[in-house]
């Protein structure tokens, strides 16, 4: 109540022009240490994925059996794996596949989820009941298991991974969008639009959609984190990115059996690389969420 009072106290007749809302979010982001550090890490790995091939000392795919399982040294900073491939080179370019697959899957999930959420939230009724129950049932199966099941039937390929993760994340986004839309459609501006004889498409996309963009953005950045999590995990259990990619999850999968032998360098650096990306994405998501909540 007091907070409200403070707000009306500074409620000047006219404040900033409208486009400043976007600028305000960007400004908040540019001042958020959490967001910036996450963004920097992601930028680093994107650069590695794009230009890594020109920077690394060895060919990440070239095996050199004589120098297999060499511990870290000045020649091989992160050592070599059981095929004698340079771990440092592999880690640097290992982000390539996951940084394509995970964002693509997230994009797919966002598009499908937003469309579903918008329709079910706006029309409600029978369609909503059926779709919601179905989505609930899908969400009752843990994502990894769902992916496992689907990939067994679709076969392993990057496209399959994108489709499967995209589809299995869509219900989460749809649920967020649906509840936001259901709140929005109770507001009087929707009634006002009906009293102007606007079409359902206009009401959904011009009136409601702009107001649910913030939750969609927040939810999809959070989902991007989970997508990287999921892709890495699928690769680790052999259902994701396939050899001979230098993908991190895949590398850990092929090498972790030798942990007991003390060959820690074959997995540790890949693990740290995954950790850095996942944490970075979540720092970004945290920043985005904070920036939208601040308004």
């Amino acid at each position: 109540m007091t907070a409200a009072e403070v707000k009306t106290g500074i409620d000047r007749p006219v404040a900033r022009p409208r486009h400043d809302r976007v600028r305000l979010v960007l400004r908040t982001l540019s001042r958020s240490g959490v967001f910036l550090s996450g963004f920097a890490i992601i930028l680093f790995w994107v650069c590695c994925a794009l230009f890594g091939n020109y920077l690394v000392p060895y060919d990440p795919l070239a095996s050199d059996i004589i120098n297999a399982l060499v511990p870290p040294s000045s020649a091989h900073w992160f050592g070599t794996d059981q095929l004698g491939r340079d771990v440092f080179s592999r880690v640097i370019v290992g982000s390539r596949d996951i940084l394509v697959v995970a964002p693509a899957a997230t994009l797919l999930a966002t598009v499908i989820g937003s469309a579903l959420g918008l329709c079910t939230g706006y029309f409600r009724g029978f369609v909503d009941d059926v779709v919601s129950r179905l989505m609930e049932a899908v969400m009752a199966i843990p994502g990894v298991i769902l992916a496992l099941l689907a990939i067994v039937s679709l076969g392993t390929s990057k496209v399959a991974v994108i489709v499967v993760i995209g589809l299995s994340f869509a219900p989460n986004i749809a649920r967020t969008v649906r509840s936001a839309v259901m709140q929005e459609r109770e507001l009087d501006y929707v009634a006002a639009a009906h009293l102007r004889r606007e079409s359902a498409v206009h009401v959904m996309f011009v009136e409601i959609l702009p107001n649910v963009i913030p939750p969609i953005l927040v939810e999809s950045t959070v989902r991007l984190g989970y997508a990287i999590f999921a892709v890495a995990t699928l690769s680790f259990i052999g259902f994701g990115i396939q050899p001979p990619s230098p993908d991190w999850g895949l590398s850990i999968s092929t090498n972790y059996g030798m942990i007991n032998g003390g060959f820690w360098w074959t997995v540790l650096f890949d693990a740290l690389a995954i950790a850095s990306v996942v944490i970075a994405v979540n720092l970004v998501a945290d920043g985005v969420q904070g920036a939208f909540n601040e308004r």
Partner: peptide
């Protein structure tokens, strides 16, 4: 439709904040 219009109680709800 255009002859019968309304002014709602709560303008925050009645005015679309994105426009």
């Amino acid at each position: 439709t255009k002859s019968l219009q309304i002014i709602f109680q709560n303008p925050d709800s009645a005015l679309n904040r994105s426009h």
